[in-house]
Write a protein that binds this DNA or RNA. Structure first.
Lengths: 355, 355
DNA sequence: GGCAGATATGGTATCGGTACCATACAATCG
DNA sequence: CGATTGTATGGTACCGATACCATATCTGCC
């Protein structure tokens, strides 16, 4: 192997001084360009001899088909885009993994875009991706992204909402049953005897934030417990939110809750950190529940009582549905797929301490 | 707003039944297509009146430029690809963040691809990305990916190696000083009095695995300690490797090490889990050091003694260098950029327990 | 023999932009 | 005043594939 050097000029061994095109291959093989195209894409009858001549021409020239020009003609890019809110969260990377697996079975690639829960980043990505003629979108809307979604709509590009929905948007969607999950977690705490349960979750513009609050309130109401807005904290789905909201909740001994409900795994890590700094033990001094498992390996062994989603399935099924639409299926009625969540009871909850 | 419905046919308000093109805009504005192109790209003198007429035509038609056809003509896609080994690791997501920031300043987008440390996934991505005429590659090679890299080379597409290098590959590269980092960590343990230090790291085909072993051996040699192959464990940069290797290291009380060196953060989580299951406390019963910080929020407060890299900087600088090359800079000599790592001493190490 | 259908290949136009070259007029200048 | 430079716009060809239509041979069968 010759020593490799990056940023070399293109291979000039054929003397043309540029990358070979389908015409160069055709000339060398003594056939028409369209025939080469057929060999590459297996789209028509080709005699074995021709196929072999073409293939050997491809090999000698190191021909690489140009999918840009292909896309221009076919109006398909074979690319899907996925806009997620936080790529550092294992929940989302697992969703991505599922979507990728579903896509690769169909020869589609996924462009992963991190919106950082910011509406303007969402909008910017949509702009660029529409120009790039992406075949379809998997969207986890951040706040009110309806304007961006309307633009996707206007271009006639299919999309599927994932994990989150938006009011007044009629669209295919795949998500987990946040309401029931939150209801079960809260009910579990109530059954242990807790009466002052704080919830720390995402703002109401995020549908999972709304739904988890709804499930929480449902359980309270069922148990005859009054809603107390002092116990409801809204922030982002981040570590910092969990940390600061917990500190705030602990400030006054009088109103201090006996249990904390973290809206997702990252909030839960912040909650635990704040409790630790206040010298409070889980579950002896404070019970904690959360949505989603903590990052793998977190805290030696899993000890948190959680409502488990199936992020891989979410991603896989959302992508499968999108691919159906991309392939022109408009007959299947609009889908709103909601997966059940599973309550996993571990060691982070106990009856409230006596005061 | 009309109710939104995904997978609608494209907007037909102009009666053409298809997406408007630059020619449609030109017709409506009463100018030539090239003039519209100039307005969009700001590439030539345009009178204010013309600009406004064109802009308003763009607005009425909801024209979205097609970057596929643009790329075909200009031979630029304004896309970079980044192939990383493990997208679930915060180290890599932070690298990505840095690369994205550097790229977006230049109007470039990054396609993030997860190779899962698998050579065939690496090769498959390279194939697809070359066809998509990506402008440049940021590569974290997994094992021996030289064949794939040779193909990139042959197409004349610039690339920069990031975090890892490959033997006999002359290429721009950006990475951390693994040798010194490993040397410092090991030396720290030796100075505390440890004589039996196990290292758990990546296989030798990964350059960081090689280099970290090298630094470890350097420190041993300097201290006059003999190399003991029973103390050297190779696996992947994953939680499982740390877990299983630690279990193996603990098996025999006679050969049991007094300190463990984890090759990266994920290995460290596995190490901690295994120690916990064996009822061993850190640092009282076992000292542990690691490369890279544990995931944010891990273990309440940071307590691990680590060699810190700067993943954001790595990503930012690698992308900046790549962008230079993409923009045609072939005069700057080949760069091999190595960032220092910082030894952060926390609470995971102590002198070895008396036997 | 003639015809339907399977097999195998090619010519030409086209996707939607921009490169390249050309043109025309106004302002500036020695 | 003619030449030069700056401003403003357009015509045509082309990037590298494939869609669409056409053609030719071969087989089997009535």
């Amino acid at each position: 192997m010759r020593p490799l050097l990056n940023a070399l000029p293109p291979d000039n061994s054929d003397g043309t001084g540029r990358q070979p095109t389908i015409r160069d291959v055709a000339r060398l093989a003594g056939v028409a360009p369209i025939t080469v195209s057929r060999v590459i894409n297996n789209t028509s009858y080709i005699s074995p001899e021709t196929r072999e001549r073409v293939q050997s021409a491809i090999d000698t020239l190191h021909y690489v088909p140009n999918s840009i020009s292909r896309s221009l003609r076919t109006k398909k890019t074979n690319m899907l885009a996925m806009l997620v809110s936080d790529i550092t969260n294992p929940f989302w990377t697992t969703v991505t993994r599922g979507a990728e697996d579903a896509s690769s079975h169909h020869g589609l690639n996924i462009i992963l875009c991190n919106t950082d829960e910011k509406q303007d980043k969402f909008a910017d990505y949509v702009t660029v991706l529409l120009q790039k003629q992406i075949d379809g979108f998997l969207l986890a809307p951040t706040g009110d992204d309806r304007a961006s979604i309307a633009r996707i709509d206007k271009q006639g590009v299919p999309y599927v909402l994932i994990d989150r929905v938006l009011p007044n948007i009629q669209a295919d969607s795949v998500r987990s049953d946040s309401v029931t999950g939150a209801y079960l977690l809260t009910k579990h705490l109530i059954e242990l005897g807790h009466k002052r349960i704080a919830i720390i979750t995402a703002p109401m513009v995020v549908s999972t934030g709304r739904e988890r609050l709804e499930g929480y309130l449902m359980a309270l109401e069922e148990a005859g417990l009054a809603r107390d807005d002092c116990l409801i904290h809204h922030g982002g789905y981040q570590h910092e939110t969990g940390y600061h909201a917990t500190c705030a909740a602990l400030r006054s001994a009088a109103t201090r809750p006996t249990a904390l409900f973290a809206g997702n795994n990252f909030i839960a890590t912040g909650v635990l950190k704040a409790l630790d700094e206040h010298g409070l033990r889980v579950p002896e001094d404070m019970s904690v529940v959360s949505f989603d498992d903590l990052p793998y390996g977190f805290y030696r062994k899993p000890f948190m009582t959680v409502a488990l989603q199936e992020p891989y399935t979410l991603g896989y099924e959302a992508a499968s549905l999108l691919i159906q639409r991309v392939n022109g299926d408009v007959t299947t009625p609009q889908q709103e797929i909601i997966y059940p969540v599973e309550l996993i009871i571990r060691d982070s909850c106990a009856p409230p301490a006596q005061r």
